[in-house]
Design a binder for these strands. Structure first.
Length: 495
RNA sequence: GGCGGCAUAGCCAAGCGGUAAGGCAGAGGACUGCAAAUCCUUUAUCCCCCGGUUCGAAUCCGGGUGCCGCCUCCA
């Protein structure tokens, strides 16, 4: 089995072969930090988070870099609107980014370079391009001359004539060619500025990624990732300027994630149809969003809706119930033993291979989750009713669970204990349940619940089922779900 | 106008030439005092439409229809 990835360059799946065997150098375009992140950003970041996790799981040593664009027009505008320095804007939103994405369980990249920390490298790169005649300075701006790069358009499948024919190319008298783009922008008075051979100014957007990728990873990287909307012009321009500067291919594989849609339309700032990550994480547990994102292939568009989240939650609950059973087995003193023979347990015994097989096909998380659910069904057959009394089953169950746990980990799922998932995280109110909305009721404490369970147990022992049912219903109304098993009654908060 | 993508059950979603994964929801059964959870069974004669290639197509080709994206800042 070997990994295949869909390379935007060429538009097809290819065998994944990094430049150095066993090592992967990966750069993902991060966000411009002028505002809060929304679900679309979460999609991209979760997609590449899973890709990094899977590559490591597959044995690669991955060096993963993701930048922050911390200087650009939007940031400057925001700063002047709020009357604060631009660093205050970027600092605030970088903190917010980390806060939001830590909750989503994203791995921190090996470095998170910022454009403003790489101005010398950027100036060196631009100077080189000017010296080589690939770029030209006009009134303190520096533009890249697209005509000097015959392969321009090779990533996005566009050709220069078509682009010129389109009426949407901005007209700028100072450019030699309408397609030329800024490598360096002269600053207006009062704007943030760095000294340069062309006067005070700041980096253009595209050049920062070339400079930072080269500095942190070298002239040819293995994987360059980002959202589909970055293919043109951003990544096309990165290729042009980088390859003109080095004469080497900039990236071996270009990976692009699809969009998050609302009612079949791209979620975006300009359409105003976006939900910030904070909006969403105030309503559902972080892993519910992760599950929702992992349930589709990373290149497909996905439609975001309350219903999708509710379905994701139902699926994730099922997985956490398995983890809960494993925790109960452990608490009962079970130790992992051998897995049982038998065809019906094959999806469990062979889970790793099946999971890897799905992921090897261009990180097909949807299929991989399917294999995991197959394994979960097999595993549930082993679930003991009473772990303390059924040692063998408990040991087998635990062994099966421990086989699956790392695979869930690749998807970034089941990261917390089931106890926490079902009980302690009640500050996160799941209000997207189908049809029900629990508003802000105060839920009973664990001690109260246990007290009521004892009372109910006594009632049941006396066969006073009406009283037992009354207690259960009372707790249910307060948001607590009781489940009677052979080994006793367990409970969880419900939505 | 140029380039690209998508259309699979009530909903979500895999599938990449060999006879429709998985999840959610639903139905029946087992278990249970009753529930819940779990297990078992069940739910697309068929993959937008029309042609074609093939022993064989949801999968390939041609033509439609519908939706979306990029070409401007954008994950």
């Amino acid at each position: 089995m070997s990994l295949k990835v869909f390379n935007t360059m060429g538009g097809r799946k290819e065998a994944f072969v990094p430049a150095t065997p066993g090592k992967v150098r990966m750069y993902v375009c991060g966000v411009t930090v002028y505002d809060l992140c929304h679900v679309g950003h979460a999609r991209a970041n979760v997609a590449f988070d899973i890709i990094v996790r899977y590559l490591r799981h597959a044995g690669y040593e991955v060096r993963y870099i993701r930048n922050f664009t911390d200087i650009d027009d939007k940031i400057i505008r925001r700063a002047s609107q709020e009357g604060i320095p631009f660093e205050a804007v970027t600092g605030k939103y970088i903190d917010a980014f980390h806060e939001d994405f830590d909750r989503l369980g994203l791995l921190r990249p090996d470095a998170e370079p910022r454009a403003t920390e790489h101005v010398p490298e950027i100036i060196a790169l631009v100077s080189g391009l000017v010296r080589a005649g690939k770029a030209y300075a006009v009134d303190g701006d520096v533009y890249y001359a697209v005509k000097g790069f015959p392969e321009y358009g090779k990533l996005s499948g566009k050709n220069v004539e078509d682009l010129l024919a389109g009426a949407r190319v901005e007209v700028d008298e100072r450019k030699r060619d309408p397609l030329d783009f800024a490598l360096w922008k002269a600053s207006k008075p009062g704007e943030p500025a760095w000294d340069s051979p062309w006067g005070p100014g700041r980096p253009g957007w595209h050049i920062e990624c070339s400079a930072m990728a080269m500095k942190h990873l070298g002239e040819t990287i293995d994987i360059h990732g980002g959202g589909k909307d970055l293919v043109f012009p951003h990544h096309e321009n990165e290729i042009a300027q980088s390859e003109a500067a080095t004469g080497k291919p900039f990236a071996r594989y270009w990976l692009h994630n699809g969009f998050v849609n609302i009612d079949n339309e791209k979620m975006s700032k300009s359409l105003g149809n976006f939900f910030t990550l904070r909006d969403v994480l105030a309503r559902v547990k972080p892993e519910v969003l992760r599950f929702f994102l992992a349930a589709s292939h990373y290149r497909s568009p996905i439609d975001y809706s309350d219903r999708s989240l509710a379905e994701a939650k139902a699926g994730l609950d099922r997985l956490y119930r398995v983890k809960e059973k494993a925790e109960i087995c452990r608490a009962a003193g079970a130790a992992p033993s051998a897995l049982p023979e038998g065809e019906e347990f094959a999806p469990l015994r062979d889970a790793r291979n099946r999971f890897d097989g799905a992921m090897d096909d261009d990180f097909n998380t949807a299929a991989a989750l399917g294999r995991l659910f197959d394994a979960v069904r097999a595993l549930n057959r082993l679930a003991p009713d009473d772990p303390a009394a059924e040692r063998e089953k408990a040991g087998q169950f635990l062994a099966g669970y421990e086989l699956l746990e790392p695979l869930f980990g690749v998807l970034g799922l089941l990261r917390i204990s089931a106890g926490d998932y079902f009980r302690l995280e009640i500050h996160v109110m799941d209000t997207v349940g189908v049809g029900e909305n629990l508003s802000a009721t105060v839920r009973p404490s664990e001690a109260d619940v246990l007290k009521r369970i004892e009372a109910r147990k006594a009632a049941r022992a006396r066969k006073e089922y009406a009283e037992a049912d009354r207690i259960r219903k009372e707790l249910e109304a307060a948001g607590v779900l009781l489940e009677d098993g052979k080994a006793g009654t367990t409970w969880k908060y419900r939505e």
